[in-house]
Computed example of a mutant assay.
Amino acid sequence: MALANTAMIASSSAPHRSRIFLRDPLRMIPTVHHKFSQPHQSNFSTFRIVVHASSNGLNAVGSTSLKSDQDADYVPMPIVMIDQDSDSDATIAQLSFGDRLGALIDTMRALKDLGLDVAKGTVTTEGSVKQTKFFITRLDTGRKVEDPDTLERIRLTIINNLLKYHPESSQQLAMGEAFGIKAPEKKLDVDIATHIHVKEDGPKRSLLYIETADRPGLLVEIIKIIADINIDVESAEIDTEGLIAKDKLHVSYRGAALNSSLSQVLVNCLRYYLRRPETEIDSY
């Protein structure tokens, strides 16, 4: 598919700040939005590349030039986010690892092996950072993923593929050691890294936010702890930022938000279990 070279210049009110929008796959100036769609097919047929540049020169530096300013041994921070709120019909899994991401088709195939359908995906490059989003639904129902066990498998599948194609990322991931690759040089103090908060989120549910040292099976373990004190989990998502896991869960008790006493019980239970280094974890 040929792409015509076009350019639009829109001047803003501020002096020396105009934005140029280019559509040319050969012009690799810094911000690229690359979208593809896959409506129940294995081959991609639609591609769109949009390149944004700033005429003031601040953002008009190619990624090669940016790399040259960095230490050759620099390893960017890997980030894997499971987003349940942005799309009502699909679970969004987002992966970021500098500009080193590759083998995306293999990641999609691995997700399909879990009984999932990747209906759409986007790749966005801004400066030296590339982000990939997968819009995921269950293959059997066509609905977004709600099961915490499956959400954790999605997360670990993406991280496993990241480690496979970019083993240097293991230096920044707790999974490097867990998956038998190079363990990160930096180790977290679980007691210091663990933070738990419960906030109001309407009359019928509360928002539970957990930040702690990452490990395999973490989301499933957390939900089991919550269930043991008879609190219901309505939705859950988990983000991985290097060695840290950040979980966000909507919880309720008998159809209502948690009161202050029950919130404190929940926080105390989670803090106790998450800070135990001998806590057993599931193997995936």
Results as ranks from 00 to 15, higher is better:
residue 52 H to L: 12
residue 145 V to W: 02
residue 263 S to V: 00
residue 51 V to W: 00
residue 221 E to T: 13
residue 52 H to W: 10
residue 151 L to D: 06
residue 123 V to L: 13
residue 10 A to I: 11
residue 64 T to D: 15
residue 197 H to K: 14
residue 147 D to P: 02
residue 146 E to Y: 15
residue 133 K to G: 05
residue 114 L to A: 04
residue 169 S to C: 07
residue 244 I to K: 04
residue 188 L to A: 07
residue 48 R to I: 07
residue 125 T to F: 12
residue 154 I to V: 00
residue 211 E to W: 02
residue 189 D to S: 02
residue 109 R to T: 11
residue 150 T to Y: 01
residue 97 F to R: 01
residue 50 V to W: 14
residue 88 S to T: 03
residue 51 V to P: 02
residue 49 I to Q: 10
residue 270 L to Q: 01
residue 73 D to C: 14
residue 13 S to L: 12
residue 174 A to S: 13
residue 48 R to C: 09
residue 212 T to E: 00
residue 100 R to W: 12
residue 147 D to F: 05
residue 185 E to G: 13
residue 51 V to T: 03
residue 161 N to A: 10
residue 37 S to K: 09
residue 255 G to Y: 12
residue 45 S to I: 05
residue 250 H to S: 09
residue 224 K to L: 05
residue 273 Y to K: 08
residue 57 G to C: 04
residue 102 G to Y: 05
residue 204 K to R: 11
residue 176 G to L: 01
residue 89 D to A: 09
residue 126 E to N: 11
residue 283 S to K: 13
residue 54 S to T: 09
residue 93 A to G: 04
residue 98 G to F: 05
residue 245 A to C: 07
residue 202 G to R: 03
residue 73 D to G: 13
residue 57 G to T: 05
residue 278 E to P: 02
residue 9 I to K: 11
residue 66 L to I: 15
residue 160 N to T: 14
residue 275 R to P: 02
residue 75 V to W: 12
residue 191 D to G: 10
residue 42 S to W: 10
residue 148 P to L: 07
residue 79 I to F: 00
residue 20 I to A: 15
residue 4 A to C: 09
residue 139 L to D: 15
residue 11 S to I: 15
residue 78 P to G: 01
residue 132 T to I: 14
residue 41 Q to H: 06
residue 80 V to F: 11
residue 247 D to K: 13
residue 263 S to R: 02
residue 25 P to Q: 03
residue 268 N to I: 04
residue 26 L to P: 00
residue 209 Y to E: 15
residue 237 E to I: 02
residue 42 S to T: 13
residue 141 T to Y: 08
residue 17 R to D: 13
residue 132 T to C: 15
residue 200 E to I: 04
residue 279 T to N: 13
residue 133 K to Q: 13
residue 248 K to Y: 09
residue 162 L to D: 03
residue 225 I to E: 01
residue 245 A to L: 01
residue 145 V to R: 00
residue 11 S to L: 15
residue 152 E to F: 00
residue 259 N to G: 04
residue 55 S to W: 11
residue 78 P to K: 10
residue 8 M to E: 15
residue 62 G to V: 11
residue 142 G to Q: 04
residue 154 I to T: 04
residue 278 E to V: 08
residue 192 I to K: 15
residue 111 L to R: 04
residue 99 D to R: 08
residue 72 A to N: 13
residue 94 Q to P: 01
residue 277 P to I: 01
residue 146 E to G: 06
residue 91 T to S: 13
residue 172 Q to P: 08
residue 42 S to Q: 10
residue 222 I to V: 15
residue 188 L to D: 07
residue 142 G to F: 05
residue 67 K to V: 09
residue 245 A to V: 06
residue 112 K to N: 11
residue 117 D to L: 08
residue 254 R to F: 14
residue 69 D to C: 13
